[in-house]
């Protein structure tokens, strides 16, 4: 028969120590770096080194592992460090940071107000994307606050996207006010009509 019963090697499961793993982050081989990053889940003290590694890491699979380990080790400090990547020119890093922050609601929540007030409209859009995904019952009110106060069309559009899913009848008047503010913009008109229909109080 062509089928053979294969035996896999036995592996010892003894964890490597912190300094060995941190040393392995400098390896030229992506598989070695990736393995070290995965094993660093055991060491909360490695968080800063992992954040620093993210900046220089070029291998997509190692980057994915870095984000996973950082989500595992999440803390307000990690969240603030990841939020710095929202202004990166590297789109993969930016979007990886957004996804990771969406998975650490308690760690990022205290920092969201700062991000929502950022001078860069793209950072505010990303902050709204993170906010809209959080599992928290204040989310509709915070999103409504964005459409009442933010002047940028794309930031408001991101908030409408969230409100279409989580908003209740109480946000309809804010949506109607926004329609007047962006009168003549076909997309905003469409987005607001769609959101109100989704909210179900036409």
């Amino acid at each position: 028969m062509a089928l053979v019963k294969g035996k896999l090697p036995e592996c010892d499961g003894a964890p490597r120590d912190l300094s060995t793993l941190l040393g392995a982050l400098a390896s030229p081989e992506s598989a070695v770096r990736r393995n070290a990053v995965r094993d660093l889940k055991l060491y909360p003290d490695s968080a800063e080194a992992l954040c620093a590694q993210l900046q220089d890491e070029t291998s997509p699979s190692v980057r994915a592992a870095l984000f996973s380990t950082l989500i595992h080790l999440q803390s307000p400090h990690v969240a603030v460090r990841l939020a710095e990547f929202l202004r990166s020119d590297d789109v993969q890093l930016r979007n990886g940071a957004i996804e990771a922050l969406q998975e650490m609601p308690d760690a990022i929540a205290p920092h969201l107000q700062v991000l929502l007030g950022d001078a860069d409209s793209d950072v505010r859009i990303f902050a709204v994307n993170i906010l809209a995904s959080l599992r928290h019952d204040q989310v509709p009110e915070w999103l409504a606050e964005v459409i009442r106060t933010d002047a940028h069309v794309n930031v408001c559009a991101a908030a409408i996207d969230g409100l279409a899913e989580v908003g209740g009848p109480e946000v309809v008047k804010d949506l109607e006010a926004l329609r007047l503010r962006f009168a003549g913009d076909a997309f905003m008109d469409f987005a607001i009509t769609t959101a109100i229909r989704r909210i179900g109080s036409e």
């Binding site: 028969m1 062509a2 089928l3 053979v4 019963k5 294969g6």
Partner: peptide, 14 residues
């Protein structure tokens, strides 16, 4: 694999 892959005899498949 045994029924439908014509190369199955040439490989060790685990």
């Amino acid at each position: 694999i045994l029924e439908r892959w014509d190369q199955s005899d040439s490989w060790n498949i685990e």
